[in-house]
Nucleic acid binder design. Structure first.
Lengths: 129, 129
DNA sequence: TATTGTTATACTCTATAACTATA
DNA sequence: TATAGTTATAGAGTATAACAATA
């Protein structure tokens, strides 16, 4: 189990590095498929809001995302991906083929069984298999 | 799969924090069950030797490990855990019950099946199940 | 010459605390 | 008063480069 998690984590880091991103940056970029606020993002990633400020600043400097004003709440910001951000995120996801490669060695039945066991071991339903 | 890996990583980090360690520190401490050199450790963790120097310095400051001279090669150091280091590592492992908790919700047959699938998905044998 | 380990330095992630602007 | 986000700051992980001691 440890080795599996380790391999997964490494694959994620390598894929991010291939696109000059850190794990944290790839993670944030991947979670802005729709416009959203920074507080929301900090809650989802269970980290302090000041982290998000910094990571967003780095992604913004590369023009991968933009911070727009929110007309409904003038304290808040709406994060959106630029077309370049969309493209880089898609490229990152193609690079991060760990899940696909891992699954490719299993039959369809085995993939279903694995998803089922992981879900049960986790004790709660996963968002997507 | 992502959620499973995420939960595993979080459990590891929380367990380390419960004993005032970072993930990197718990990882290094856990890998010195027998005396070993720093180059060896850096290779296993796939990081630069200078990282090991720093992490070891922090563990040594807490008297959890010691750096001994190696009579066979006077350039090298042998890292060993102190009794306090052994005790803390054991306590950490008890705290990191993710694997046990996760497995507890599975039957013995399911546990075997999961280990088998993960091994196959990983494409190489795991060191220990 | 090559290797082990250290030091200096720089970048990033992360959190805390203090702050501004808005609700 | 409470919340969204920023700024300043500090500790830790990480890598690179230069170095000393030894092989």
């Amino acid at each position: 189990m440890f080795d599996f998690v380790d391999a997964y984590d490494r694959a994620y880091e390598i894929a991010a590095a291939q696109h000059d991103m850190t794990v944290a940056q790839a993670c944030v970029l991947g979670r802005i498929s729709k416009p959203r606020g920074m507080r929301d993002l900090a809650d989802e990633l269970r980290c302090d809001a000041s982290n998000i400020t910094q990571i967003v600043a780095r992604l913004e400097a590369r023009e991968l995302i933009e911070r727009h004003a929110n007309p409904e709440d003038r304290r808040a910001r709406q994060l959106i991906r630029t077309p370049a951000g969309d493209a880089l995120n898609a490229a990152f996801e193609r690079s991060f083929e760990f899940a696909r490669n891992a699954s490719a060695t299993l039959t369809a039945d085995e993939q279903n069984e694995l998803a089922l066991l992981l879900r049960k071991a986790l004790g709660q339903p996963m968002v997507d298999g």
